[in-house]
């Protein structure tokens, strides 16, 4: 109790004011906080406990506590060890890394270009980048299915170059999955990168040039360090959701490009093994929390006002 032993009236008044402010804080934030805690934090905590339970006869979790789900995730099943689940994990990781790398390569010049455009055009250009991501994920996947399907001009062109056999088409394939991931997450990299490019200190670059540094050296020592916070924030916002992606591998991958998200979903649907699915989800939750730690650190570096909205 902070107000125990206060003797002066002003101190009592101050503590009363502080209490009023605390009540005000609770009144305005509690609906939102409770909603997120009850309907997201509690369910995720529940899901994490399922990961340590046994699989019941109908796929529903039951006692006793066990680590079986994690063993199954590592490949140990009733029939001995098989690498299927590990392959899925590694494939998720590899496709995430590949897609994130491509997204960086595309978003970096875009964000720079937007930041050098006339100020009144910039909101419009950012909107042009963001609007496609407002359309439904499934619809965007249909667009790529159309573009890459066998017989489409692009598939025929690639077949004519001899890169794929005719009649094959570019979809379904791992290639289509990576294209879909890049397409889906490009805006999440452009926005934080734009935020750092907008505040770029050109004095440092001029100084590097004056000191005789070539374009590459001045980029590495004057530009890259300044944009690093945006780059890292973008990497978190792209790679974590990409790692758990469900829709794109399911629609564009055609069964052979399953990622962790699909493995998890399958355990709750046809395969009926909730604990195994929960164990896979646990990995994603841990990755999410790790990503949040990075974002929080960056938030301070990027300055308190910079919000990574959208």
């Amino acid at each position: 109790m902070p107000d125990v032993g206060t003797s002066s009236a002003s101190a009592a008044g101050a503590s009363r004011a502080a209490r009023t402010r605390t009540l005000h804080l609770l009144a305005v934030i509690s609906p939102g906080v409770l909603w997120i805690v009850i309907f997201l934090v509690l369910p995720s905590a529940y899901l994490m406990t399922i990961a340590f339970m046994s699989n019941g006869p109908y796929g529903l979790p039951q006692m006793p506590w066990t680590l079986d789900a994690f063993k199954q995730l590592a490949g140990y099943g009733f029939l001995g060890w098989s690498p299927g689940n590990l392959y899925t994990l590694l494939r998720s990781l590899w496709q995430t890394v590949l897609a994130t790398g491509l997204v960086i390569a595309m978003a970096y010049p875009m964000a720079y270009y937007i930041s050098t455009a006339p100020a009144r055009l910039r909101p419009l250009m950012l909107l042009a980048v963001v609007v496609p991501s407002w359309t439904n994920q499934v619809i965007r996947a249909i667009g790529w299915m159309n573009i890459l399907s066998p017989g489409s001009p692009i598939s025929d062109g690639v077949a004519a170059l001899g890169l794929i056999s005719p009649q094959m088409g570019l979809f379904p394939s791992k290639f289509a999955v990576v294209v879909g991931l890049v397409y889906n997450f490009l805006p999440f990299m452009v926005l934080p990168l734009y935020a750092v490019f907008e505040k770029l200190d050109w004095g440092q670059i001029d100084a590097a040039r004056d000191l005789g540094a070539g374009p590459l050296r001045s980029f590495r020592h004057a530009v890259l360090p300044q944009t690093l916070p945006g780059l890292l924030a973008g990497t978190v916002l792209v790679s974590i959701p990409a790692f758990g992606m469900y829709v794109i591998p399911e629609l564009l991958g055609g069964g052979k490009s399953m990622m962790l998200g699909n493995l998890v979903a399958r355990q709750f649907a046809e395969a009926s093994n909730w604990p195994l699915g929960a164990a896979g989800a646990l990995i994603m939750i841990v990755a999410t929390l790790g990503g949040l730690v990075v974002l929080r650190r960056l938030g301070r570096k990027l300055g308190g006002d910079t919000q990574v909205v959208l």
Partner: peptide, 13 residues
Amino acid sequence: VMPDIVYGISQMS
């Protein structure tokens, strides 16, 4: 930040 599949499955279960 949370992947939507984890989100959906947590709430579903």
